[in-house]
Amino acid sequence: MIDIFNYGFIIRGLGAGVVIGIIAPLIGVFLVLRRYSQIADTISHVSLAGIAIGLLLKVNPMITAIITTVLSSVAIERLRISKKVPGDSALSIFLSGSLAIAIILISHTRNASIGLFNYLFGSIATVTQSDVYLITILGLFVVATIIAFYKELVYITIDEEAARVSGIPTKFINILFIILVAFSISLSIPIVGALLITALIVIPAITALQFRKSFKKTIFIAESISIFSVIFGVISSFYLNLSSGGTIVITTIIIFIITIFLKKNKITKILHLF
């Protein structure tokens, strides 16, 4: 068997993948419980416009994706609060609008469509050393921010009205959270791709919720599923010559199906191990 650790791109892919594996479910548990999954999907599509801008300007597409998604996420949140446009419709405008921008820009960028495929579905071969540094630094920022505002995020997620009454600055925390979502999505693009990142954010979280544990344990379970899926996905995609993003997402889905099966058949002893 080929020793995969002799390949630099595998080391880079695993390093960046583990960081993504940590931040995606950390964001995901809050997103799922707040019924924000659709927002994550919209922001991931917005990131495509950012990638297209990066390819056009010949700068690191992850950086342009971060800028585009952060600005759009703040606009989406403000539009949601203002209630001037129904929530779903506002998301549709951003989703289709950013895809349209991406297509227009790509059609004017030479050879960009080849690179775009990697950004749509993820490919660890595209992860550069500077990507790993960027993902690690911003990933640490996301984790540190979640830890710093953990208690406020939990309160708002469980009961936003009561949190507001108690004096928690809900508007500030909501904006901060949506920015963290934008960061997490943009950072995940090289590994799982813009179109599959929502799956890595959402599926470990909904799987962990099946265990019916406390908030902290739910996050821990989601983290375990996500990190395992990323490592397993990256390694198996190498040996089987598959797309890393697709393999990671399929792994999370298989774990979800197994969990549902165990729950349905009341094989709860395994679930109680956590």
Partner: peptide, 22 residues
């Protein structure tokens, strides 16, 4: 106000009462 799938224990709920104070 609380969702049916919220993974939150009784102690975690009551602890929220201290959050804004802290």
């Amino acid at each position: 106000n609380i969702g049916n799938d919220s993974p939150i224990t009784v102690e975690e709920i009551v602890a929220m009462g201290r959050y804004a104070k802290r």
